[in-house]
Measured scan of single mutants.
Amino acid sequence: RERTTFTRAQLDVLEALFAKTRYPDIFMREEVALKINLPESRVQVWFKNRRAKCRQ
Rank of each mutant, 00 (worst) to 15 (best):
residue 43 V to W: 02
residue 51 R to I: 09
residue 20 K to H: 06
residue 54 C to S: 13
residue 45 V to R: 08
residue 56 Q to S: 08
residue 50 R to Q: 13
residue 2 E to W: 01
residue 52 A to Q: 06
residue 7 T to K: 07
residue 34 L to M: 12
residue 19 A to M: 10
residue 3 R to I: 07
residue 33 A to S: 09
residue 42 R to A: 13
residue 23 Y to H: 15
residue 54 C to E: 13
residue 13 V to L: 11
residue 16 A to C: 12
residue 49 N to D: 15
residue 55 R to Q: 10
residue 38 L to A: 15
residue 18 F to Y: 09
residue 18 F to I: 00
residue 49 N to L: 10
residue 52 A to G: 11
residue 35 K to A: 09
residue 21 T to P: 03
residue 41 S to V: 09
residue 34 L to R: 15
residue 25 D to C: 05
residue 21 T to H: 08
residue 50 R to I: 09
residue 54 C to Y: 12
residue 24 P to G: 01
residue 55 R to M: 11
residue 49 N to K: 09
residue 15 E to I: 03
residue 22 R to M: 13
residue 4 T to W: 04
residue 41 S to A: 14
residue 20 K to L: 04
residue 28 M to R: 08
residue 55 R to H: 12
residue 7 T to H: 04
residue 14 L to K: 01
residue 44 Q to E: 08
residue 14 L to E: 01
residue 6 F to D: 03
residue 10 Q to L: 02
residue 2 E to L: 06
residue 4 T to C: 08
residue 8 R to T: 14
residue 23 Y to K: 09
residue 50 R to L: 03
residue 44 Q to D: 09
residue 7 T to A: 08
residue 7 T to L: 02
residue 21 T to Q: 08
residue 39 P to T: 11
residue 28 M to T: 08
residue 43 V to Y: 00
residue 25 D to V: 01
residue 47 F to S: 01
residue 48 K to W: 05
residue 19 A to H: 14
residue 50 R to N: 13
residue 49 N to S: 11
residue 12 D to N: 09
residue 19 A to C: 07
residue 38 L to E: 15
residue 25 D to M: 01
residue 46 W to H: 00
residue 51 R to S: 03
residue 20 K to V: 07
residue 5 T to E: 14
residue 46 W to V: 01
residue 21 T to W: 02
residue 2 E to V: 07
residue 17 L to Q: 11
residue 23 Y to Q: 08
residue 17 L to V: 11
residue 29 R to E: 01
residue 28 M to G: 02
residue 19 A to P: 03
residue 18 F to C: 00
residue 10 Q to R: 01
residue 12 D to Y: 04
residue 47 F to N: 01
residue 49 N to H: 08
residue 38 L to N: 03
residue 15 E to V: 06
residue 37 N to Q: 09
residue 19 A to R: 10
residue 13 V to R: 07
residue 36 I to D: 01
residue 15 E to Y: 04
residue 30 E to Y: 06
residue 38 L to H: 06
residue 53 K to Q: 14
residue 3 R to E: 14
residue 23 Y to C: 11
residue 1 R to Q: 10
residue 47 F to T: 00
residue 52 A to D: 14
residue 36 I to Y: 07
residue 14 L to P: 00
residue 5 T to D: 11
residue 5 T to I: 15
residue 21 T to G: 01
residue 36 I to K: 02
residue 34 L to T: 13
residue 8 R to A: 15
residue 51 R to W: 03
residue 31 E to S: 10
